[in-house]
């Protein structure tokens, strides 16, 4: 299928580029560790801030790994070829997002317990962070992909992606943190915050790929 072929192409490109996939992970660990330095050695204070730090670090790392997501494909004419072919640009965007999730977000999720431990996080909170990131991270990737598609032909890509995508991720961040707090209590699994978090991801799933595809179409017109 064309969709999986596009996914595989992106995965192969990212993995063969020599450590490109690790950028987001290293950035995530750096932001987490430096927040620790900034807060200081008081273990109780670090514990209180651990969940927000993990979420912010994940959010920033997602945007960072997305700033050049479509730039090369627009410059090299790949987008034009796909637009001419049988599969839609929306599919192409979705395939890109799946590849980003596998290459950048999955390692980041795997490293969350490690960063959580050095931030002295409570086990129940750590579970909450991992669960909410599992639900919410796709929205971060999708909005980042939209920002990247909008700024693919631009001059100042990096900061522009953050400026375009970050406001769109505000609801996901808010409900993500609320979900962590809800999961700290015993009956948290059915909390409405988790459903709202899922809703922000589903809205991003519906809106971001077609919008990003329209933006890519405008880039090649």
């Amino acid at each position: 299928m064309a969709f999986w072929a596009m996914c595989r192409r992106d995965l192969a490109l990212t993995l063969r580029e020599g450590g490109g996939w690790a950028n987001a992970l290293v950035f995530f660990l750096l932001v987490g560790a430096f927040s620790g330095f900034a807060i200081g050695p008081d273990l109780e204070r670090i514990r209180a801030f651990a969940a927000p730090i993990l979420w912010i670090a994940a959010l920033l790392a997602c945007q960072l790994s997305l700033d050049r997501l479509f730039a090369a494909d627009v410059e090299q004419g790949i987008v034009e070829i796909i637009a001419l072919g049988p599969s839609s640009l929306t599919q192409f965007v979705a395939a890109k997002c799946v590849a980003v999730w596998v290459c950048a977000v999955a390692p980041l999720l795997a490293a969350t317990p490690l960063l959580g431990v050095i931030l002295n996080i409570a086990p129940q909170t750590l579970l909450g962070v991992v669960v909410t990131l599992l639900i919410g991270a796709p929205a971060l990737v999708l909005w980042g992909a939209l920002g990247s598609a909008l700024s693919a032909g631009g001059k100042a890509s990096g900061v522009l992606v953050a400026l375009l995508a970050t406001p769109l991720t505000a609801p996901t961040l808010i409900f993500g943190i609320l979900g962590v707090r809800a999961l700290e209590s015993p009956g948290g699994w059915t909390a409405p915050e988790l459903r709202y978090l899922l809703a922000t991801t589903l809205i991003a799933c519906v809106l971001a790929p077609p919008a990003a595809a329209a933006a890519l179409k405008a880039q090649i017109d």
Binding site: L150, P167, A170, L207, A208, A211, A214, A215, A218, Q219
Partner: peptide, 13 residues
């Protein structure tokens, strides 16, 4: 084109 897309998505947000 691009600004129009960003404006519409932003409004939904």
């Amino acid at each position: 084109r691009l600004v129009a897309i960003a404006a519409m998505v932003g409004w939904i947000n």
